[in-house]
């Protein structure tokens, strides 16, 4: 096996679906776990803003129902992220990545701000469109090689068409990587730090993991 992220430490087999931990994926998994725990235990901050034209400031307070929904979405995002970090199966990877995209929209969609909702809507459209290349990549890999296991695919004897890799990267880009990342920046103005951080964390983690997957395939 190609040891891009270091020597695999541990394999966890669910039938033919293998979850494996290398030092690289373990690091990413632990970080996703740590920030999911932060989402669980921390209250959102109250964002202070200056009221222009007056000598005053106001705090944006998140209501309890909004907090509950966003916390749920953030935890779901964290779980999907953890799954995408350690899975050893191309289809599971694409599935979890698309789940992360949906959760990211959910995290900010509950915010009552026109700018944030606009950004969430646009990002949602891109994420939706991104699932087409994402799943086509998995389909192409399965059709050409007959397997979806990354451990099998990493062997030199298996040739994966360049188009499949390109589609995979394109799909992941749609789910939140640069350059669509910049559109997400508007979403980060929303209050509720622990939840909003989950958006950017999931993007970065998926970017890192797809880099490994592409080097591995």
């Amino acid at each position: 096996m190609n040891e891009i992220g270091g020597t695999p430490l541990f394999f966890l087999e669910f039938g033919d679906i293998v979850v494996y931990f290398t030092p690289f994926t373990l690091t990413l998994f632990l970080l996703a776990l740590v920030f999911t725990v932060f989402v669980l235990i921390s209250r959102p901050e109250r964002q202070i803003d200056i009221a222009f034209g007056a000598d005053a400031f106001y705090a944006k307070v998140i209501s309890l129902p909004e907090l509950r929904f966003r916390r749920f979405m953030s935890i779901a995002c964290g779980l999907a992220c953890m799954g995408a970090m350690v899975t050893g199966d191309v289809f599971d990877f694409t599935l979890l990545v698309s789940l992360v995209g949906i959760c990211n929209v959910g995290i900010v969609a509950a915010v009552k701000s026109r700018h944030v909702q606009n950004a969430a809507y646009q990002y949602g459209l891109v994420a939706l469109a991104g699932t087409v290349p994402l799943f086509s990549a998995a389909a192409m890999v399965a059709a050409t090689t007959g397997t979806l296991s990354m451990i099998e695919l990493a062997k030199d004897a298996v040739a994966i068409p360049l188009a499949a890799r390109a589609l995979l990267v394109l799909g992941v880009m749609g789910e939140g990587m640069a350059p669509f990342y910049a559109a997400k920046a508007e979403m980060f103005r929303a209050p509720g730090a622990p939840y909003v951080i989950m958006c950017s964390l999931s993007s970065l983690l998926i970017f890192l993991r797809v880099a490994e997957v592409i080097l591995l395939l």
């Binding site: 992220g5 909003v196 950017s200 964390l201 970065l204 890192l208 880099a211 490994e212």
Partner: peptide
């Protein structure tokens, strides 16, 4: 692995984000 260093470097961004927000 150099990839782990790369990952940690990128995740420093989340740390900055967390500090700020």
């Amino acid at each position: 692995s150099l990839l782990v260093i790369f990952a940690i470097y990128m995740l420093h961004k989340i740390v900055e984000h967390g500090f700020g927000l």
